[in-house]
């Protein structure tokens, strides 16, 4: 465990806490893409299949359970909770995310570290996580103005993978046998997808103005 990775995991946890805060405090999920939340639930369920087979550390197991439970809880809440689901932008959140799932799964069947059930699902979850934010970014573009908590949620979500890239660089130089090229390349694609959001987020922070993305 190095500082970059710990900072990345904490930033990831913060993004989830900010989203939970927004939904429970405002009893609203306006501006949040249900499709992105569903994709994240699939990402964690597909990636943490080794939860009961490979014990790495208490920290590792606890964080896996937290990520799985929180992502499923958010999807459940946006689908079932009466007040919350009324505020869901159903007509704006129309990205066909099933195509993303299919494409990532086919790609994982082609490109993986080992052709085993667990490794293929791990690669699938890495690819899917890289593109899971797309429905959310499309929704933000369509809804124009972004409320503070939603903006902070997306910002922390993007920042966590950027910190992981620093972690992979650090591990590459400090560990002889470290090669995580699938995660590294996907992580770069994932962070690049946030580039324009980060740009407008920085501008809004610098000018102390409301964050609004050009349509």
């Amino acid at each position: 465990m190095n500082a970059f990775r710990l900072a990345g995991d904490i930033t990831h946890l913060i993004s989830i806490l900010v989203l939970l805060l927004k939904i429970y405090a405002t009893k609203s999920c306006s501006g949040i893409s249900l499709k992105t939340q569903e994709l994240y639930a699939v990402v964690f369920l597909a990636r943490y299949l080794d939860l009961f087979t490979d014990f790495i550390s208490v920290y590792n197991s606890v964080m896996k359970v937290v990520f799985i439970l929180s992502s499923v809880a958010i999807v459940w809440c946006m689908r079932r909770h009466r007040a919350v689901k009324r505020s869901y932008d159903k007509e704006l959140d129309t990205f066909r995310h099933y195509y993303l799932v299919g494409a990532c799964f086919v790609f994982a069947l082609l490109v993986h570290e080992k052709f085993t059930f667990q490794e293929v699902f791990w690669a699938f979850s890495i690819y899917l996580e890289a593109v899971a934010i797309i429905p959310q970014l499309v929704l933000l573009q369509r809804s124009g103005n972004v409320d503070n908590l939603t903006g902070q949620y997306v910002f922390f979500l993007g920042a966590y993978r950027a910190l992981y890239i620093l972690n992979w660089i650090y591990r590459y130089f400090t560990e002889a046998k470290f090669s995580r090229w699938i995660a590294c390349i996907s992580g770069l694609v994932q962070t690049a997808l946030y580039a324009d959001f980060f740009y407008y987020y920085f501008l809004s922070w610098k000018n102390n103005a409301k964050l609004n993305l050009p349509a």
């Binding site: 990775r5 995991d9 490979d54 590792n60 896996k64 990520f67 080992k114 791990w122 046998k177 995580r180």
Partner: peptide, 10 residues
């Protein structure tokens, strides 16, 4: 000990 292929990252 964890084999190198074990995913130790979240």
């Amino acid at each position: 000990i964890t084999s190198p292929s074990t995913k130790d990252e979240l």
